[in-house]
Amino acid sequence: MTLLYDGSFETFLTLVHKMYYEKLNPDAILKKAPDTLLFDALHEVRYDETKSLAVFEALQKRFAKEHFERILHIFMCDGVDFEMDLLCYIITGFKSQRELENITLPYVFRLHALQKELFHISHKMSGFLRFEELEEGTLYAKLETKYSVLYFLGIHFSKRLNNQNYIIHDIQRSLAFVHTKEFKGVQKVAEFEAPKLSDAEQKFSKLWKTFFESVAIKSRENKKLQKCTVPLLYRTYMTEFMND
């Protein structure tokens, strides 16, 4: 049986509920209806608040914190077909929490690895994110990443930019982490106008580029290595790789 759901965490929980109580037995779970015809029947699962909540509470109660969090983290990994693995993970977890650390089980290993990749991207971005200073002093950064790390970054910067107003704007997902005196958290971005930069902005970005170019040692130049360490897809908004 092939299941179809909307890709959200909540609906996935409904799906888990149905699997237990309505004896669904999927061999594939899709986020989008396929263009080609399936041999299999396609069964669509819709969000059901009661069922979803019931599973949520059960998970919270029966799963160790780190195992529970792993499920949430997996849902930040957009575009990965993790559903069957996650289903196995949850079934296993209700039987034995210990088994969820058994990395010799392929689906456990894959989820561990996926979570690590998510953390890795988040860690890289915590260095590569660039803020620009806007007219009234707010710091503004644009973000584009494979997986959703906006929330992690928002928290990371709330420590180091504690006394600053800042906005991290996740362009593809139309979300922003906003940190002001009045509000701290993730918001939807409906519309967006390119903001005006402060007068000092140009001076400091130029100063940074000067520094960046001057610290490279010519006799050790190795652009290939640089491409491994800062892959091109990270460079879009990095001041030092932008041409003015």
Binding site: F128, K159, N162, E221, L225, T229, V230, M238
Partner: peptide, 23 residues
Amino acid sequence: YKTGELGATNNSGICHTFTADGR
């Protein structure tokens, strides 16, 4: 970090960019 102040240090080192020689 301290509330109301600027800056914090991190346990795992953070690279902010890499130079043309890959450092």
